Simulated assay, not measured.
Amino acid sequence: MAVAAQGPMFDPGRPGLRVLLLVALIAVVAGGVYAWRSQPEPEPLAPPTPAGSSLSAPSAGSSPRPATVGGGTVGGAGAGVGGGTAGEVTVHVTGKVRRSGVISLPAGSRVADALRAAGGTREGATAGSLNLARRLVDGEQITVGASGPAGAAAPVPADPAAAVLDLNTATPQQLEQLPGVGEVLAHRITEYRDGHGGFRNVEQLREISGIGDRKYRDMKDKVRV
């Protein structure tokens, strides 16, 4: 009876009831958001370390092995003597140089490079008639300070018809002794030789302007490589 008597005091009325419902709704939403944000987040596992990843890679600044000059070395020339590859030429430098011997240099190198690799000329000596700008031919010998053109073959015999010339070492004067070869054609042969790093076979003569089938037949038995 006491509660029934005091009932009107606790009745919030319609506006108060709406406020209470709104507060309760806000409390429920806030509690749900808090509970959702409080959930633990899974952390991704670190990727496994690849096998062999601890091996150190070769240094980017490593340099190729130097070439061998006699008993010494020449930097940046590739493999040593006897280890020639398609990307290098091996020549023998002798005569009035500081370090004569067999030298391996990159393909396309010039006589000046071989002379420099051999330490240059001796004191008081000169390169003489050497063509320092000529491309090197694999297997040739460069004689510094010798009289006559470097890399020349043996002197032409008294009978030029009996000579068998090496296309990679013959001088223009020797080439002029071949059938049908004059000064102009001899110059073309040496130009082709220097521009292609030497002749690999006699058939390459066909690629030179001025040497047709007939002239090639006359020449092929008198030359070699």
Rank of each mutant, 00 (worst) to 15 (best):
G76R: 08
V102Y: 15
V93C: 09
G108D: 03
G87T: 09
E88R: 11
T94L: 08
S104Y: 01
L105F: 02
G72Y: 07
G78F: 00
G83K: 13
G108F: 02
A107N: 04
G76N: 10
G82P: 10
V89N: 03
G80C: 12
G80I: 04
L105P: 01
A79C: 07
T94I: 14
G70E: 10
G101D: 09
T90E: 14
H92Q: 14
R65W: 02
S109L: 00
S100L: 10
P66T: 00
V74C: 09
A86M: 03
G70M: 11
G78A: 02
P66F: 05
G83I: 02
G70I: 10
P66A: 07
G71T: 12
G82E: 14
V97Y: 10
P66I: 05
V89F: 00
T73L: 12
V81Q: 15
P66Y: 06
A67W: 01
G87H: 11
T73C: 02
G78V: 00
S100I: 01
P106Y: 02
V89Y: 03
G70D: 11
S104H: 04
S109W: 04
V69K: 05
V69S: 03
E88S: 15
V102M: 12
G75M: 06
G83Q: 15
G82N: 10
V69P: 01
A107P: 00
S104C: 08
V74D: 01
G84Y: 02
A79T: 03
V97S: 13
A86G: 08
G108A: 05
V81Y: 09
A79K: 11
H92M: 12
V93I: 12
E88P: 00
S109I: 04
G70Q: 08
V74K: 08
T90G: 09
V89W: 02
A79E: 01
V91D: 09
T85E: 00
G87D: 15
R65A: 10
